[in-house]
Simulated assay, not measured.
Amino acid sequence: MTAFSLNPEQIAWCAELRTLADERLRPLAEKGEPGRVNRPLVEALGELGLLGPLFAGEGSGTGPASRTPHVASGALGLCLLRESLAHACTEAETALALQGLGAHPVAAFGSPRQREQWLAPARAGRAVAAFALSEPGAGSDAAALALSAAPDGASSWRLTGEKCWISNAPEADFYTVFARTTPGAGARGVTAFLVPADRAGLTGTPLDMLSPHPIGALAFDGVTVTGEDVLGEPDRGFRVAMTTLNRFRPSVGAFAVGMAAAALDATLAHTARRDAFGGKLKDLQAVAHQVAEMATRTEAARLMVYAAAAAYDRGEPDIAQRAAMAKLLATETAQYVVDAAVQLHGARALQRGHLLEHLYREVRAPRIYEGASEVQRSIIAKELYAGPSG
């Protein structure tokens, strides 16, 4: 298998995932309340074995991931999983991704006690996880975070401050929280903590956002954490954050590709059957050329995502640059494709409940979260100038 083609087993797995998402996960998603954690959906992802690859590179349960662990493993497997789910059910894809972001630091940096307590329930979908990095004054500039972790004895701290735009907040069961343990030290003074949701002094409020997935703000009023709550090492939390984001960044592009592909498929079907100006809409050269452009850009984004994921799995040295390029191209492409699809469908696409109305709301956020497009361009430029000829 190269980075630019999938083998028959991978193609079959993706088809199975799309069917599974359409038949098993979409009904659960439709019963959920927008802006709230859909626990039956998260549990179904766990029962089907789809959450296992997020943490250990292998499936769990009796679902398709457990039957084909070698296909589901690694960054490429995660990309295929996210793209396939997004094509049929964006809510299922988002629930899966949020669970991965919140719990991956526990899998990668957690102590045996932390892993034993939280990882199995998270993999099974019984415990909802959240990744708490962003703050009102520290979004793209994550090193500027100000949530204070003031020393409280020899090996404990008190967390004071806010987190904002945290997916799955305030309903998650536990949070990976990044706080400043050394003032004035930038990225080198941040520590990652595993904070259970029932910890005294931790409260949260939901936020009403354009995208329908759950997102909220957290307030920390002297929340006590100890050395047993640290993920990794004190003052090394920025590494925990970046390792997690680098793991998932290429697959954000896969989510975007899945949405673009869904919009493209809907457009092909609509333009082939829609009567206009004495023929079908697809017979108009302007329409046909627009659809060709949508398809070409979607395929280019897909290939870049696959290549970045394959490079990650091989441990190549330019992962940061390739992951940033993949996320940038794929999310910007998805925005273009969904917008073009809406234009070709006309007013019907803006009716509440239409697939494209849903995708139009969903597609905007990926250009911001896990590093906005402008941040991705900065990463790419930095890596380019740091190269042999930089």
Rank of each mutant, 00 (worst) to 15 (best):
A254T: 04
R247G: 02
T296S: 14
H345E: 10
A86G: 01
F55D: 03
L210Y: 04
D221I: 02
F174E: 05
V42E: 03
H70M: 11
R126N: 00
P112C: 01
R348T: 13
G59S: 08
D313G: 06
A241P: 01
E47T: 09
A95W: 04
R302G: 00
D22S: 14
G186H: 07
A324D: 02
G390E: 09
L45C: 02
L329R: 12
E357W: 14
C79F: 02
S84C: 03
M1R: 14
L350Y: 09
A269T: 08
L281T: 07
A15Y: 01
A310H: 10
R115F: 04
A300M: 09
E357Q: 11
T333A: 08
A12P: 01
G102P: 11
R236A: 15
G186Y: 10
F109A: 08
H358K: 13
P105C: 12
Q343A: 15
G74S: 08
H345T: 06
H358R: 15
L281D: 12
A127K: 12
T176G: 09
G74H: 08
Q117D: 10
E162R: 15
C164T: 15
R18H: 00
W157G: 04
P317V: 08
A386T: 06
E135H: 07
V42A: 14
L80G: 09
L355F: 05
G186A: 10
L25Y: 02
R236H: 14
Y369L: 09
P388R: 12
D313M: 09
L202W: 11
T296N: 07
G201W: 06
V305R: 04
T298C: 12
T203S: 15
M304R: 15
N246P: 00
P121M: 06
A97C: 05
G57I: 03
A197R: 14
A292L: 13
A334Q: 01
V195G: 06
G125F: 10
E30W: 07
T19L: 13
A185H: 03
P27L: 04
T2L: 10
F4V: 06
V195N: 03
E299P: 01
R352K: 14
L51H: 06
A260Q: 01
C164R: 15
R36V: 09
H270G: 00
L41V: 03
A266P: 01
A197T: 03
S378L: 14
P34Q: 09
R273W: 00
R113M: 08
T333V: 11
P34N: 10
A269F: 01
V128Q: 05
T203N: 01
G49W: 07
D198F: 08
E58G: 01
A262P: 05
L101W: 14
L51I: 10
T160P: 00
Q343T: 15
E362L: 01
